[in-house]
Structures are given as structure tokens and as C-alpha cells.
Write a protein that binds this DNA or RNA. Structure first.
Ligand SMILES: [Zn+2]
Ligand SMILES: [Zn+2]
Ligand SMILES: [Zn+2]
Ligand SMILES: [Zn+2]
Lengths: 163, 163
DNA sequence: GGACGACATGATATCTTATAACGTGCCGAC
DNA sequence: GTCGGCACGTTATAAGATATCATGTCGTCC
């Protein structure tokens, strides 16, 4: 939940340090992702870019996304065919994502227990891991709370059979 | 690694028990998946079905896949846009998958440690999980071994600098 | 300064994956 | 018999991703 501005600034620094170019197009895509604060599809990004000076075609967006993925500045959410900005891109990593099916929000976790258990189970089977995809879909705390409240209110109005 | 025949038979029983219909098309899709023993895309399934009596269109395949997913007889591998037969469909579940990038093979795990750690980390954040996607991409034991052997042989032929 | 190569982008077309919408046929319930 | 639910057929199209070739941009080397 870093401020979008700060995220961009950090990305600038990282890219300079690494000797790679955060070009206008790439920064623009990153800005859109960070500002959204939720998963955004490639074509939605493209639409957002149309607002700007130039019209862009799919390959432009996908190339920018490829770069940002390589630099660990964003992540791809496989189960949504969408992308999100990374909250701590200092060193590239795989993360765990909690995806709310109600509000579409996504939280990026970094849980050692999950990583350790995955590490050990892959090791045991002689598997050499390269990339991890961990995506849990369900209902986030906020939405669960709202649901709870709605149910409660409902019950108050008509105190029918206690379930 | 159950025999395809046995998997189909088990699916028949399960569907009868549940009062749902494992129709010809659905069984055919399941057969193709089980026989392949690796992830297969929807359109590849469709091609395989063309060999049979009737030509089928995408919706037919996707409907069959939807049913099989609902019944927990197959899984979808999100990162590959492909499907695999489930090895233990007795009660529907989410699993962890090890996906080999060399040979394309997939192993379905069922690891309590991974599940427990995911469970606890989601609980902590008040998140109510519904479906888990856990896919680890890398190199399987077999392929890693082959690579190892190749390297060794190479070293034997030209005993250059020891790495 | 001009030639060159590396890299980023533009532009067009195409491919892959997935779903919408509507119609038909089967079968059991009533 | 007819009604309703369900599986499937058929056509079209949406949504996501890539292949290919052309153009531009910029620093380096001579
Ligand atoms: Zn991250
Ligand atoms: Zn939510
Ligand atoms: Zn399974
Ligand atoms: Zn392998």
C-alpha cells in the first residue's frame, strides 16, 4: 500500500542502479498499475494509455510489462490474466496473493512459513523450483465484514428462525 | 500416476453416487486428459476429439471441462492455460503442482504443511479462502538428473577448469 | 561528422484462449 | 401429451498474447 508516487520514484532509482532504462512507456504502464492499486489487464492498461499523447498497440504494452516483470517491479496474477505493482521491488521475488472475489482487491503477502514449506516439499521430490505462483481466491476481511453486517441487519429487521 | 482406465472407472462411480451424469462428451474429455498424463489445453482436447465420431466446437469442450472441474475430477493449471486429470478425486480439493519447464510434466502434490501455512496466513489477515492456486515452475528430478549427466559427460570428455 | 549497432517503439496481422447467444433434441415428471 | 431441465450443436465474437517487419533514437567508433 505504498503511495504510487513513491513507488515510481523507487523504480527510477532501481533502474538507474541496474543500468536499465525506465522509458516513458514503461513508466506510464507502471504508473497506471500503481495508481490502480488492483490487478489490471493488459488491454485495460492499453485503454488507459490511449488517454495520453499517443495511441499504443498491444505489443507495446506487453513489451513494457515484460520489462517490468523482469525487473521485479510488477507481478502477474495468473488466475486473473492481470498485473499489479509490487510493494517491495528491491530484490525480485515470488509472492503469495490474496484475491478478493467480491471487491477485486489483491494483497501481496510475503510469508516465510509458506515459502519454507513449499521449499521443503519441492526439495524432497528432487524438484528445482524457479518461479512460484501462489494465489488464494476468496473474500477479504473488509468484504467479509460487510457481509456480516448485512446479515446482522437483516436478522434484526426480521428476527426469524435462529440459524 | 493412476492408470487411465482406473481413473475413468472411479469417475463413473463418483458421478453415479452424486447423481450427476458423466456423459459421452464428458467422459471423452476426461479420457483424453487422463491418457495424456500431462497438462492439455482446451483446443488440444478439441483436436483430439475431432478424431472421434463428431466434430466439436469450443463451447462443447469448455462445458465438459466446467463440469469436470466442478466435480473435482480435473484441475486447471492457471499458469499454463491447461488442464490435468486429478489423481484422487474422492473429495474435491485444491492442490499444489510442480510443473517442469523442460519436459512439461506436472506432479500433483497434497502437502499438509503448505496448506496449513496458507491457512494460517489467510486466517490472520481475516481473509476467507475459497480456492487455492499453487503452481511451482522449475525442473523436475528426472530432467535435473539428465542435465547433470550431460554436464558430467561433457566434463569427462574435456577435463577443463573445475567449476 | 557519418557509419554503425543496440535497443526501444510503431504498425499490422495473426494466433490462442474463452465466452455469449440462441437453437435443437432428449428424457423424465406431471 | 406437454412442460421443464439439461446436455449439446452452431455461430459469432470477446479477450488475451505473440510474430514479424519497419522505423526511430542514441551513443560509440572511426
Ligand atoms: Zn512483490
Ligand atoms: Zn473484498
Ligand atoms: Zn487433485
Ligand atoms: Zn522434467
Amino acid at each position: 500500500m505504498t503511495a504510487p508516487r513513491a513507488q515510481i520514484a523507487r523504480a527510477e532509482v532501481l533502474c538507474r542502479e541496474r543500468g536499465v532504462r525506465l522509458t516513458d512507456q514503461r513508466r506510464r504502464v507502471l504508473e497506471i498499475l500503481c495508481a490502480a492499486g488492483r490487478p489490471v489487464g493488459a488491454y485495460e492498461i492499453m485503454d488507459a494509455m490511449r488517454e495520453g499523447p499517443r495511441v499504443v498497440a498491444p505489443p507495446t504494452v506487453y513489451r513494457a510489462l515484460e520489462f517490468l516483470l523482469e525487473q521485479g517491479l510488477i507481478h502477474k496474477i495468473e488466475s486473473l490474466h492481470a498485473f499489479v505493482g509490487c510493494d517491495h521491488p528491491e530484490h525480485p521475488h515470488s509472492s503469495e496473493f490474496l484475491i478478493c472475489l467480491e471487491c477485486g482487491g489483491v494483497a501481496e503477502l510475503k510469508d516465510d512459513a509458506v515459502e519454507r514449506s513449499l521449499e521443503s516439499v519441492t526439495r524432497e521430490s528432487g524438484f528445482r523450483p524457479r518461479r512460484r505462483v501462489v494465489e488464494v481466491m476468496g473474500t477479504c476481511a473488509q468484504c467479509a465484514h460487510k457481509e456480516e453486517c448485512a446479515r446482522k441487519e437483516e436478522a434484526d429487521r426480521s428476527p426469524g428462525p435462529v440459524d
